[in-house]
Each structure stands twice: as C-alpha cells, then as structure tokens.
Design a protein around this nucleic acid. Structure first.
Length: 255
DNA sequence: TGTCTCGGCGG
DNA sequence: CCGCCGAGACA
C-alpha cells in the first residue's frame, strides 16, 4: 500500500524564489480525502485562497491566468471566451496590443511581482520565469513627488483647505521642494515603505550639490531626522488635547 | 492568542 | 462540484 504524502511544502516552479506551495490532505470527516492548497510568502505569511493572494499582491498583478489549486501558470483556464485556434498567446486583459508587445518582451508587473520574459517559440509562445534577480519592485523615479506638486484638498464648498504646518525639524531636501511636497512624500513613505523612515541620510554637501545623484528615492525628501524622547512626549500631549476637544464636542452634540 | 482543520455556504 | 472562508478544536 502506498502511503500518500499527507503534507508537503514545496518550492513551486511557477512562483518566485521564496514562495512555497503546500498541499494538506484531509484525513477525517465527511470531506476526508479532499486536498487543501496553501501558499506561503517569502516572509512566511500563509495564504489559503486566490482572493486572499490577490488582495496581498494588489491591483497591479493579474492572477487571472494563475491556477491556484495546481500552482501552474497558464492552463488557458478561463471557461468562457476560450480563444480560437489561431490566437497564439493570451496577453491578459488590461494589456495593450501594440507593436511593443511582440515577443520577446519584458514585463515588470507579472505574477507575484516577478519580472518575466515572454519568448516566442514556434508554434506556441510561453512565459519563462526569471528568478535570478529575485523579486523586484518598479524603480522609483527621482523626485517623483514633484508630480504631486500643486494638488490640494478642497472641502465641499470648493474652498481650499488650509495647509498644515510642518514641524520646523523637517527640512526639505531637493530643488524647490515646498512644504506640501514634503508632506506628500512623507505620507507616501509612511504608507509604502516597509522599514524605518529616516529621511535622506547621504552626505549633506553631496545632497545639496547633486541631489539627483545622491538622493535615496526610497526615503522622503527631508533631511535625516532624529526623533527624541521629548518629541514623542510632546506628540502624546497633542493627541491627549485633541481627544479632550473631541470629548467636549461630542458632549455638545448630546445636549 | 495563533494555528490547524473540517464544515458548509454559495457560485 | 468546488472555491472560499468561518469557526471550533487544540496548543
């Protein structure tokens, strides 16, 4: 009698390095014999459905050609609108269909945020995984924050909302970077960057002379900042005051 | 509290 | 029938 493997965690060829795929056999109960499939991100987070995976990977990734159960990439799985024989490759929805998409091409936003090369081999094309560089994020443009410059929040009366004042400790870095841009870059960094936000830590003079070269685009456009115990205490106090004001306001609503 | 496991709902 | 996720069991 062959004892089937009841639990195995594999590297999966269709997935980038570090991702694991696991099959778990149900041993008891009404559903005994059913196999559950799980995925593990490089950081160890467990995923138990395709929607969960999609949520984690974000809108930029198209999982429509990914078969969750088998872990394989392109089994032409979409039941409806199955393509006629003549068509060679499903370029996936959302992709433009111009000359720049004739293989071989590079895609940076592919399954699991991994760069792939689409190569053409007669008569069918296929997707070749490129693992040797690991996962890659889209490079950030230097001073990309400038694209946000001049954008402003308005209230319902179309009146511009007053801009918040930045603490004097936040010193902008870069060519004519205004306070609002500093705030936008800070907010973006807080939202996107995993890890500490430390500001621009490069050599001061170089940053001044040639920011385009010495700036770290991963960090916000502020000089390296140091947060002291006092700053934290002061901030806690401000929060307390704000809460107090909110309490008063709510009390005013009740009566 | 977090992980593992099976049930069961709904497409 | 099967994907997805809730929730009980268990550590």
């Amino acid at each position: 009698m062959s004892v089937q493997i009841e639990k195995r965690r594999f590297d999966c060829s269709a997935l980038p390095k570090g991702w694991k795929r696991e099959e778990v056999l149900r041993k008891t109960g009404l559903t005994s014999g059913k196999v559950d499939v799980y995925y593990y991100s490089p950081s160890g987070k467990k995923f138990r459905s395709k929607p969960q995976l999609a949520r984690y990977l974000g809108d930029t990734v198209d999982l429509s050609s990914f078969d969750y159960r088998t872990g394989k990439l392109n089994p032409m799985l979409l039941r409806k609108n199955k393509r006629p024989k003549g068509t060679q490759f499903d370029y996936s929805r959302g992709m433009r269909n111009d000359a720049s998409l004739v293989p071989p091409i590079r895609q940076t936003a592919s399954i699991f945020k991994q760069p792939v090369t689409v190569i053409k081999t007669q008569p069918t094309s296929k997707v070749k995984s490129d693992c040797k560089h690991g996962t890659q994020d889209k490079p950030k443009q230097v001073f990309w924050e400038k694209r946000l410059q001049g954008l402003q929040a308005y209230d319902i009366e179309a009146e511009a909302l007053r801009f918040v004042e930045l603490p004097s400790a936040l010193k902008a870095i870069g060519p004519s970077i205004a306070d609002d841009t500093v705030l936008q870059s800070l907010a973006t960094a807080l939202h996107l960057v995993n890890g500490p936000i430390v500001g621009q830590t490069g050599p001061k003079q170089s940053l001044k002379d040639n920011p385009a070269v010495f700036l770290n685009p991963e960090q916000p456009l502020v000089a390296a900042l140091n947060i002291e115990e006092d700053d934290i205490l002061a901030q806690e106090q401000r929060v307390d005051q704000a809460r107090e004001r909110l309490k008063q306001a709510l009390r005013g609503l009740e009566s």
